[in-house]
């Protein structure tokens, strides 16, 4: 019997409650939508059918392509958020870390640094005036 069954727990369905939900960082900034979830065995090894398995990470980025077209993304291309960073699960999934601390937002950063920040006023706060 697993530990979770004895402790307080909430039963959810992965597709209904986690997949495709919005991930927010520690201050509530959007990070990504959940494209897929990685599951591993109890000690972090490959899943053995019927034996304890748990969610290890939220996957983003290229995982959307395989959700759309089928197939399996090569693990080297996974953009992962460790499940240990997940703090809360509600209508959004909230992390305990800042989005800049994650290694998956490269396209946002690229567009920001190469395009948007170079246009005059790109750093202007629209609510300030």
């Amino acid at each position: 019997m697993s530990d979770i069954e004895r402790a307080a727990r909430r039963v959810i369905d992965a597709r209904l409650h986690l997949l495709d939900r919005q991930v927010l960082d520690v201050v509530g900034e959007p990070v990504t939508a959940i494209d897929d979830l990685e599951i591993v065995g109890a000690d972090g090894e490959e899943v053995v059918p019927g034996r304890t398995a748990r969610v290890a990470a939220v996957l983003a980025g290229p995982a959307i392509v395989t959700r759309l077209l089928g197939g399996h993304p090569p693990p080297s291309r996974w953009e992962r958020i460790e499940w240990s960073h997940v703090e809360r699960v509600g209508t959004t999934v909230d992390l305990s870390v800042d989005r800049d601390a994650l290694d998956l937002d490269w396209s946002e950063r690229w567009v920001r640094d190469r395009v948007i920040a170079r246009i005059p006023g790109g750093l202007h706060d629209p609510e300030s005036d």
């Binding site: 039963v11 959810i12 992965a14 897929d36 979830l37 990685e38 959700r67």
Partner: peptide, 27 residues
């Protein structure tokens, strides 16, 4: 393994009889 691998998989009983497809994974 990822959840996407499980979703939409065919499900068979022990004797190979078809039961349907995986529509969700309960956590």
């Amino acid at each position: 393994m990822i959840i996407g691998d499980l979703l939409a998989s065919r499900v068979l009983d022990h004797d190979g009889g078809g039961l349907g497809h995986v529509v969700d994974v309960r956590l």
